[in-house]
Design a protein around this nucleic acid. Structure first.
Lengths: 108, 108
DNA sequence: CTTTTATGAAACCAAATGGTATCATGTCAA
DNA sequence: TTGACATGATACCATTTGGTTTCATAAAAG
């Protein structure tokens, strides 16, 4: 229930539309910083900052290849978010149960 | 893949730890602004702002009861987030397929 | 009617955030 | 080696954000 620093960094990383777009781009294939930058109307430096935030959140993985840095999607990164949401799964179930028993009572 | 204003407001709402804590609290039962405020070391005004952001994101629902305002969790609110993540489901599958066929080739 | 009580709203503030420009560094190619 | 290219790093700037304080309003209690 308390927030682990990890889940905070993930939610933080997902909060920005540019960063979510970057994740979508990386779904297709791995990209260097320059390649990612081509798709946005902002400087490479700005894109690099976004990539750093995504990396801090564990959503992407960076590999140095010569003088390039290749950014790839990290499947495990979304784990903390899924875990957090799973905490609410019981809520939906409870609400369904309440509805169900309300209907039962109504029949009797 | 483009960001609907809705999904942005949801991700934005989820980005703050205080707001995520509020959601966890509301999982138990509906609460007024004053009741939510009791659990935090900040003013009611600040908590109200957070509740407004959560409401804008469609994550909670507010009902006026006399002079009180009751805040309740909105199950449907997390929909946009789930939808967004589902876009990546294919990615996991693809990666698994690649791994699988790599193993197959290795056997032959 | 007067007084609490619960909230709404606005002005204000410090810190975080997204962005730029600039310069340094390391690597590939000639 | 020299030059071009991809990135790292820093300082700086405007806006957003999370927070407070203060005052206004509306409903419940006496």
């Amino acid at each position: 229930m308390p927030d682990t620093p990890t889940s905070q960094s993930v939610f933080r990383a997902l909060a920005d539309p540019t960063r979510r777009d970057i994740l979508v781009m990386l779904r297709g294939r791995d990209l260097t910083i320059a390649e990612v930058s081509e798709n946005f109307d902002m400087t490479r430096a700005a894109v690099k900052k976004h990539l750093t935030v995504l990396s801090d959140g564990g959503l992407i993985h960076m590999t140095t290849r010569g003088r390039e840095r290749v950014n790839s999607l990290n499947p495990a990164g979304i784990g903390p978010v899924r875990d957090w949401f799973s905490y609410f799964d019981g809520f939906w179930d409870d609400r369904l149960s309440e509805l169900k028993s309300a209907i039962e009572k109504d029949r009797q």
